[in-house]
Design a protein around this nucleic acid. Structure first.
Lengths: 227, 227
DNA sequence: CGTTTGACGAGAGCGGTGCTCTCGTTCCGG
DNA sequence: CCGGAACGAGAGCACCGCTCTCGTCAAACG
């Protein structure tokens, strides 16, 4: 049961974060100014420090919110009743659409990390949501017997997170499959980053069609094409 | 024939850029201060503006130098006499090693773009060097008859740059091969970025072994494994 | 050879930033 | 009811990018 004071504090904190998110969308993380945020909400700049100890903490909040927003988009785009390949494609496309709609926010999440590597716990939980959705699809494919590795196991290669997202008990899953899943995940965001950051200018004309091909190629890489 | 004045000017420009590069390696692009660079070279901050019109121009210079350094590393790592798969692996490994040795510089090149998308001409020429090396390997593979697409051609999908790096006249090259080449390129840097930016923490334990597997997987994706 | 012109370096200054400190006010809980 | 904590505002510090002005010095020109 939050007191009235805690309620209004939470509201003001959210209002500051909202103004900061608007600033972020306009000018990007590098140019985001705590003073400008304070002006937008009508406070003295020093008052903002009652709610966020520093500019980096404000950015960390925006990072967490961004991961959550992207994760929600990914979860909403996943229709468990649809065929696996279609689910994979839908989630990838939704992630790309969100990135194109929020380029500065995406750059904050997947571009150069600006604080000295952000706060661990809250950040990683929110950040993992997209990976959980994609991993869930691949895990279901494994349970359907679609995925095949070479049966090899290399202790010390991967971490717990990579093992758990696919489901430990699924048949046909080994380290080769897990590596391909991680690679597909990295490649999805690598492709989106290259598109957004301008590295594909001159090489790709029809970005939509190219991305569709990439998604299909990644699906085939992990083994989703063997329907 | 440069006059003496032009010579000393070029030297001072290079000295400023060198100090800036040192600053960049230490504190990163976001915290790079033109005034600190000026202090390091023993000049007034206003004097630096005689050589670089703005901080963004200084960063652009660092970007171009960085692309050139990385391109040189990639070219030096490519031994044309080696087997194709080994050449591919050697270049990828060299690129990753450079990135790990110069994380802030790498982040400046492949992280969030900081100026309003940098100057076009000089930047893209320097930036393309790594792609040219990788594309050259794949083009040679195509001329050796290793690469096979589906024969399809989708006009308006790709740009001239994607067509030229692989060599237009090589047999067996179609848009499917070119898409896979672009994907492998994006995936290489996506993997390196994920590693450097901390997105693989918890999922990958042995980063070296994981990267070796990824490189092999990407080589197989484009068709280099069919030796 | 003398003069002039232009490049150069230094300094002051402007508006902006992140952040700290102090000082009234206001409101909640014992 | 009253004391302490939370709060907002303002001043101030050090730093930033960038501009402007003003001596100086060297190269180029008559």
């Amino acid at each position: 049961m939050p007191t009235a004071r805690e309620r209004v504090r939470a509201e003001l904190t959210a209002e500051i974060a909202g103004a900061a998110r608007r600033q972020l969308a306009e000018v990007g993380a590098a140019a985001l100014s705590l003073r400008a945020v304070a002006r937008e909400v009508g406070m003295a700049s020093s008052a903002v420090y009652r709610y966020f100890p520093s500019r980096d903490d404000l950015l960390t909040r925006l990072i967490i919110d961004g991961y959550d927003a992207l994760g929600e988009v990914a979860e909403a785009a996943d229709d468990p009743a649809a065929p696996l390949e279609q689910r994979w494609s839908a989630v990838c496309t939704a992630v790309r659409a969100w990135a194109r709609a929020h380029p500065h926010e995406y750059a904050l999440l997947y571009g150069s990390p600006v604080p000295g590597y952000a706060a661990p716990r809250d950040t990683v939980r929110a950040a993992s949501r997209v990976g959980v959705v994609l991993g869930g699809i691949l895990g279901e494919a494994a349970r359907a017997g679609l995925l095949h590795g070479d049966g090899g196991r290399e202790p010390g290669l991967l971490g717990d997170a990579a093992v758990e997202v696919l489901g430990q008990d699924a048949p046909g899953i080994d380290d080769a499959v897990r590596v391909r899943a991680l690679l597909a995940w990295s490649s999805l965001f690598g492709t989106i980053s290259f598109e957004l950051f301008g590295h594909l200018v001159g090489s790709v004309e029809d970005a939509d069609a190219y991305f569709a091909r990439v998604v299909a190629e990644l699906g085939a890489l992990v083994g989703l094409d063997a329907t």
